[in-house]
Design a protein around this nucleic acid. Structure first.
Lengths: 156, 156
DNA sequence: ACGGATCTTAACGTCAACGTCAGGTTTGGG
DNA sequence: CCCAAACCTGACGTTGACGTTAAGATCCGT
């Protein structure tokens, strides 16, 4: 089974669904943002009431948290985030298909390779960013050392 | 003597100045962006022709490179970038007037300390980002390892 | 079955960071 | 001196990611 993976299917949502207001508050984003994310296909609430009100599950919340992370941390725009999420959805689907009896050995290997390639692609871009950030930090530290030297010199 | 904002000593520009077109092409930004950066006070070209054409020095180019770096790498907006650059200009100016008789010891120490604080503040935010990025990478690597394990298992 | 909080869609507004003309000016090579 | 290329200054347009009403529907506790 999935260890810590959010492979939660909505059969297991246990009734603890959030309205859009509560979800927005917990996430620290606006209701408008949640509707907008849905509008552009980033997320669909786990269910809706017969009257049409959005109900968000915990995995929905986690998904939005990921959206925010990808946005603030990696600086991706919503189109790029859509790509990443689609990849991850694909991976989840592959994992499901993988355990299906009707899936052949060859198919499974193929799917796993595809999944691996997608993840490694993302890792490559992230590592480029990390390297650049390290260089930036090194430069910054050098500047700080020089300023410190100036100070120490003056305090003689 | 235009000693207002840009404290770069371009005595040694050796005539190798770039027009806005060449500068933009080398930097991979638009001419409009360069004019806009000037408009909001991020950069002033090293000189202008008597007719009013902008001429960019190598240090101007370097400055714009820094702007782009701060933008793409740290995700700062132009207002925040203005803050960082002004701080760095200040440090450069302090370094230049280091042996100026008219600056008192106390003044120098105060300025240096102030700049140091600002730099360390920037470093703090950058390091937070770096830590988050590392966590992100670790998670990604874990996912990749699991996928690899799946593959190896199947290749048995 | 009612009323107030919560939510709906639709539509227009906003802001940063430029893009894109239009119409006139400057420059550098021949 | 001439002219095409490069450049200038406004001024208005665009795009992404929402913010903000407006006018009405839905949910839920009593």
């Amino acid at each position: 089974m999935a260890g810590l993976a959010p492979a939660r299917h909505d059969e297991e949502t246990g009734g603890r669904l959030l309205g859009i207001g509560a979800a927005a508050q917990r996430l620290g984003v606006s209701e408008r943002a949640l509707r907008y994310y849905q509008q552009i296909g980033l997320i669909v609430p786990a269910s809706t009431t017969p009257g049409g009100l959005r109900r968000y599950s915990e995995s929905d919340v986690a998904r939005v948290e990921r959206i925010v992370e990808l946005k603030t941390l990696l600086g991706l725009n919503l189109d790029e985030i859509a790509l990443v999420l689609r990849n991850e959805d694909r991976i989840a689907q592959i994992r499901l298909t993988y355990h299906d009896e009707r899936t052949s050995e060859d198919e499974r290997r193929q799917l796993t390779r595809e999944c691996l390639a997608l993840q490694e692609d993302l890792r490559a871009t992230v590592e480029v960013k990390r390297a650049a950030l390290d260089a930036f930090l090194a430069d910054l530290n050098a500047r700080i050392s020089r300023a410190r030297a100036l100070l120490a010199d003056h305090d003689h």
